[in-house]
Amino acid sequence: MTDLLVRLQPIFHDVFDSTDLRIVRESSASSIEGWDSLTHIHLVSSVEREFGIRFALGELEELKNVGDMLDLIERKKAQ
């Protein structure tokens, strides 16, 4: 799981245009400034490309924080 978090870090730097940003499992739209619907879809697309997975539409709504995203990536990779 920590490996996944390490791989997510540069994606967040790129999407949020901030190299200072440090994410943890609890990081969410309320703690990261600028995490809105556009950034969310940008983030999702980048994650899909990086991990070679595809999120279902209904799953996107349930991603409340980085931890949810990590769990879902792990489930998708295991399928």
Binding site: S45, L57, L60
Partner: peptide, 17 residues
């Protein structure tokens, strides 16, 4: 957001402003 905006934006290879 989920069922209209996302499928439309996914039609593009790169997301831009």
């Amino acid at each position: 957001t989920v069922y209209l905006y996302t499928p439309m934006i996914r039609c593009f290879k790169q997301v831009s402003l």
